[in-house]
């Protein structure tokens, strides 16, 4: 995909950076003039992806999370949330609703389900011991396109 705008961020895998990641992606997407609904969809999906990395990637000490985003002229956005943590043994299993390995932490296991529901497409690449990359896709229609036009 050819991007007309791109950004990269690196932050520590800490719970307090979940809000930062949501704020950062919102700010980056503002030139697309998204509806509040579309922006909330993206914020929710980013929050889930970053939370997964915060909770699961680095059991010993918090490492880093990279967030990269770009959008094309037609408003298609692509967001990567990448960690270099312990990785996921079985990605298919991890994507199932209610699957969680964080039993003591009240995690619902619904993170990927929520991402899939609010985005057009979600792809996950992971290698045990090397890390996980989640890619989120969505086409954001500008606000004036989101309302039905008169014939």
């Amino acid at each position: 995909m050819e991007f007309v705008n791109e950004m990269r961020l690196r932050f520590k895998a800490l719970a307090e950076n979940e809000a930062f990641a949501r704020l950062a992606i919102s700010g980056f997407l503002l030139p697309l003039d998204p509806t509040l609904e579309a922006l909330a969809d993206v914020k929710t999906a980013v929050s889930e992806a970053v939370t997964n990395a915060v909770v699961h990637a680095y059991p010993e000490a918090p490492g880093e999370i990279d967030m990269r985003a770009g959008y094309a002229a037609d408003g298609t956005i692509e967001i990567d949330v990448i960690d270099r943590g312990r990785g996921i043994e079985d990605v298919e299993k991890a994507r199932q609703p209610f699957f969680t390995t964080a039993d003591g932490d009240e995690r619902s296991g619904m993170g990927f389900t929520v991402m899939e529901s609010f985005m057009d497409r979600v792809s996950v690449r992971s290698a045990p011991g090397k890390g996980t990359a989640v890619r989120l896709y969505k086409r954001i229609a500008p606000r004036d396109e989101a309302v039905p036009r008169r014939a």
Partner: peptide, 12 residues
């Protein structure tokens, strides 16, 4: 704002 963390909070 709420993500799936709200589910865990309520169910807990």
């Amino acid at each position: 704002f709420m993500d799936s963390s709200g589910i865990g909070l309520v169910i807990g």
